[in-house]
Design a protein around this nucleic acid. Structure first.
Length: 110
DNA sequence: ACCTTGACCACAA
DNA sequence: CTTGTGGCCAAGG
């Protein structure tokens, strides 16, 4: 089955192809689409991300989407995604974590 | 066609 | 480490 040409459907298709324990940056997803619309990808996630593993899509520095980092954390722990703790391990949203993008970065097949 | 808004990215200071 | 600047693309008004 083929996927529609819609930019949205394409983004969702790439995100949906990311296996557990792996992560990809917005720019990386956009690059697979042949575009650099990292921001447009984020917009798509904000609208349709509810249907995909948005937590597997992070920013370039390894940080999860702003305002949703606390929601993604339990997902990463469940998927065994390599994480790099930031500071105080007992805090809540005060200190933030980051994903080990160097070890968890994934590229879909051509 | 123009402008504004974004779950962005890279570089320089 | 933080801040600022420029660029990039897509969608909506």
């Amino acid at each position: 089955m083929s996927e529609p040409d819609d930019f949205v459907s394409r983004v969702l298709g790439v995100v949906n192809s990311i296996p557990p324990g792996r992560v990809m940056t917005y720019g990386g997803v956009a690059a697979q689409l042949g575009s650099r619309a990292a921001r447009a990808v984020g917009q798509v996630m904000a609208r349709y991300g509810s249907e995909v593993a948005w937590w597997r899509v992070i920013r370039a520095g390894g940080y999860p989407p702003i305002g949703h980092d606390a929601q993604a954390l339990p997902h990463y722990r469940a998927e065994k995604t390599p994480l790099l703790l930031s500071k105080n391990p007992s805090a809540t949203a005060d200190d933030t974590y980051r994903v080990d993008y160097a070890a968890a970065r994934w590229s879909p097949p051509a």
